[in-house]
Nucleic acid binder design. Sequence first.
DNA 1: GTACCTGCAAAGCTTTTGCAACTGG
DNA 2: CCAGTTGCAAAAGCTTTGCAGGTAC
Lengths: 141, 141
Amino acid sequence: MQKRKNHRMTRQRTVILEELKKVKTHPGADEIYAMVRKRLPRISLGTVYRNLEVLSELREIQKIGYVGTLKRFDGTPENHYHIRCIKCDRLDDALIEIETNLENKVRPYTNYSIIGHRLEFIGFCPECAKSPQEDAYQTEL
Amino acid sequence: MQKRKNHRMTRQRTVILEELKKVKTHPGADEIYAMVRKRLPRISLGTVYRNLEVLSELREIQKIGYVGTLKRFDGTPENHYHIRCIKCDRLDDALIEIETNLENKVRPYTNYSIIGHRLEFIGFCPECAKSPQEDAYQTEL
DNA sequence: GTACCTGCAAAGCTTTTGCAACTGG
DNA sequence: CCAGTTGCAAAAGCTTTGCAGGTAC
């Protein structure tokens, strides 16, 4: 049985949490680092990574996993879907309800024991939709 | 407009494609490298990466993007859903139909122009379901 | 007081890339 | 022939980690 640590609320942890809650898009560690650094100039990247990990254990935030090339985090701990821009990798929330029946649909066809699902919509964000999409003969959805 | 290269079918490319088509799970580059190396011992990892990229441009395979910590590829170019083991990161196909109406559901709620979606089920694979799941107080779905 | 946390820097892991030699069509 | 490809090795990009000094409780 994994032993739970007694976590403390340090200044760094508090600020990271606050900054992450402020934004609606879902930044990677480097962006969070930049945001937090405005208030705590001496914080280190390692601390940011460690705290994001701890905060998600505490269920204060949600670890989204890799999106694009970066691990992402979400200030909203409740489960929800996302929309990703295929061009700039921006990630936003999708404001529709969770479709739990999807899991029931797949159960008869698999020998995995299903405990959840992730749904990500893909498209062009308002910014990227403006400019012509010549090069995007997208190979990855 | 992006210029298309004239791709050649080299021995390396052929073998990579064949090996990838053989398996139902979706290996990362390192695993593919290991598989291919049995037939072409002198191939390099760089070649594997470059060919996976080329093959997905050619629509012979599908680039899945990051799953777990690795980029994954899929020998089946047709779109379909996946199931990932939360414990060992194994990835299998989910044999249910694509739900295109999901995209219509989200359109009214976003200013992205939606072009697709990815759905990934999460659970324990048959292997990992056997052993007790003590430590998995999972923070990431 | 002490378990937990921090900054720093080094290490780690996966993927990408420069280059000179090679080769498919 | 020659654009495209390969093996090798180095570089790049992001994340994790060891350590010694600090700090929340």
